[in-house]
């Protein structure tokens, strides 16, 4: 795997508690990488370590195979969770200031900004003071400031907090668009719906440790563990009898449109799925069979509770 960023055995402790305990992860180039975890798990600390806003007690952060330097940091795009804008400045001037600080020249910055402002529908905020903006509005401005210089690595801390569903959707589209243009995006969140929709890879941090890492699809499949929903003509009892010891029936059946019944089963790994299918097909007039992938929300809760196998 070609990873753009690699975090290796990072440990960071504050007075009285450990914020990150031996955390390692690899961020594949060109991916959207989600850092998940409950509040206080250490997501923001990890981001601050990656950014070198704070230093790890132990461990390394590598960018493109070399230890990350302050100069690298100056070129990445970073959006902190609490919005970092000068309150007394006007929106447009402020955006130009940050853009020039990131190395764009004034005319180029203004051109790009006008484009982005139009795109996010905030052109008429150009001359307003930041202190007059709502949280979501300020966040849009901050988002533009973060991505304007087209960095190859973008880090967002809780980018969706403070947004209504419409704007959250808009932001998702923009994040995917940035990925399609070649950027790698790391963001932290506890909004699981956004994870399923846009993340390629995730790391789940709980109580300062990395408890789950990998591609979203693999994680969901692994957590799914051979659970299927089968639609058939038989009654719940008849179906259970037909399945016998080949699989475990989960919960009650439910009726579905067209007089069919839907029942969930879990097939132990040592059993052959084809045998189960053949048997059910004989006895229950099998109509459909679908693998049940758990939602990231389920996985999140199960992983945090420690019930994920």
């Amino acid at each position: 795997m070609d990873s753009i960023l690699s975090v290796q055995h990072v440990t960071k402790s504050y007075t009285g508690h450990v914020a990150l305990d031996d955390v390692s992860l690899e961020v594949p180039r060109g991916s959207v990488y989600g850092l998940l975890g409950p509040n206080g798990a250490g997501k923001t600390t990890l981001i601050r370590v990656i950014n070198r806003i704070t230093l790890a007690d132990k461990g390394l952060v590598m960018l493109d195979g070399k230890e990350i330097t302050v100069d690298d940091i100056f070129h990445i795009g970073y959006m902190p969770e609490e919005r970092g804008l000068y309150k007394k400045m006007r929106v447009g001037e402020q955006a130009i200031f940050f853009a020039r600080l990131k190395g764009l020249d004034k005319r180029d910055a203004e051109k790009r900004l006008r484009h982005w402002f139009e795109r996010l529908g905030i052109s008429d905020w150009w001359g307003r003071k930041v202190e007059d903006l709502s949280k979501g509005m300020a966040q849009k401005v901050q988002f533009i400031s973060t991505v304007l210089h087209e960095p190859k690595l973008l880090i967002f801390d809780e980018p969706f907090s403070g947004f209504d569903p419409i704007n959250a959707n808009l932001l998702k589209e923009e994040i995917l668009g940035l990925r399609d243009r070649g950027a790698t995006i790391i963001f932290s969140t506890h909004n699981m719906a956004s994870v399923e929709e846009i993340c390629d890879h995730i790391t789940l941090i709980n109580k300062s440790r990395n408890i789950l890492s990998g591609s979203v699809e693999e994680i969901r499949r692994a957590a799914g563990g051979n659970t299927f929903e089968i639609t058939h003509r038989a009654s719940h009892e008849a179906f259970a009898e037909a399945v016998g010891k080949l699989a475990n029936v989960i919960g009650e059946s439910r009726g579905v449109v067209g007089g069919y019944t839907a029942t969930k089963i879990n097939i132990p790994r040592n059993e052959d799925i084809r045998e189960v299918v053949a048997r059910l097909n004989d006895r229950c007039e099998l109509r459909a069979m679908q693998e049940m992938m758990p939602s990231m929300n389920d996985i999140f809760i199960r992983a945090v509770n420690g019930t994920l196998k």
């Binding site: 070198r52 806003i53 302050v70 940091i73 609490e82 970092g84 600080l101 990131k102």
Partner: peptide, 13 residues
Amino acid sequence: SSRVIDVMVTSCS
């Protein structure tokens, strides 16, 4: 005391 500091520290020395 504002979080502008995070942005500034990641943009200049």
